[in-house]
């Protein structure tokens, strides 16, 4: 049997209302054959992690244009790890300075993308990362 489709949560944490980018990405990933769970605007870190847990996603993509990325990425990574979701890829995009991207990678985020990134690059990156991470997820799924 072929591998089940990649499941990814697309969320917008915090208060900024610019969801065009998130919608474009959600649609692009769907067209690449992924199951995209779109949670919409104004999510708290806790809500996003609860959704990621219940939906058993392979990846979480955050869209941020508010400047709050240095808060949300590390916080969500921390909550994901605490919920037993260490295998889940945390990626995203928006307006994020290069220096911050480097720091966030150090704190456990994956690659972060800026405006104008072709969807194909996102798709390649997510597929590659998920293929690498799924064995860890499956191990976590084994009954004790």
């Amino acid at each position: 049997m072929s591998d089940p489709p990649i499941r990814i949560l697309i969320a917008k944490p915090g208060l900024d209302g610019h969801d065009r980018g998130a919608k474009v990405v959600a649609q692009g990933l769907r067209d690449a054959g992924m199951e995209v769970i779109y949670t919409g605007l104004r999510q708290t870190a806790e809500q996003i992690v609860k959704a990621a847990l219940e939906e058993d996603v392979d990846a979480v993509g955050l869209s941020l244009h508010s400047g709050a990325h240095m808060t949300f990425f590390p916080r969500i990574r921390e909550l994901l790890d605490a919920a037993g979701l260490g295998h889940v890829l945390l990626t995203g995009g928006g307006i994020i300075p290069e220096e911050d991207k480097r720091e966030l990678r150090r704190l456990g985020a994956g690659m972060l993308f800026g405006p104008g990134t072709p969807i194909a690059s996102l798709v390649d990156y997510i597929r590659k990362e998920v293929a690498r991470r799924r064995p860890a997820r499956d191990a976590a799924g084994e009954p004790e």
Binding site: R30, D31, I37, Y38, G40, T44, K50
Partner: peptide, 17 residues
């Protein structure tokens, strides 16, 4: 493509936490 956009959850905001 086999892909899907699952958007029902985002209406359930009141139960999100």
């Amino acid at each position: 493509t086999g892909g899907a956009l699952l958007g029902d959850r985002h209406r359930m905001a009141r139960s999100a936490a």
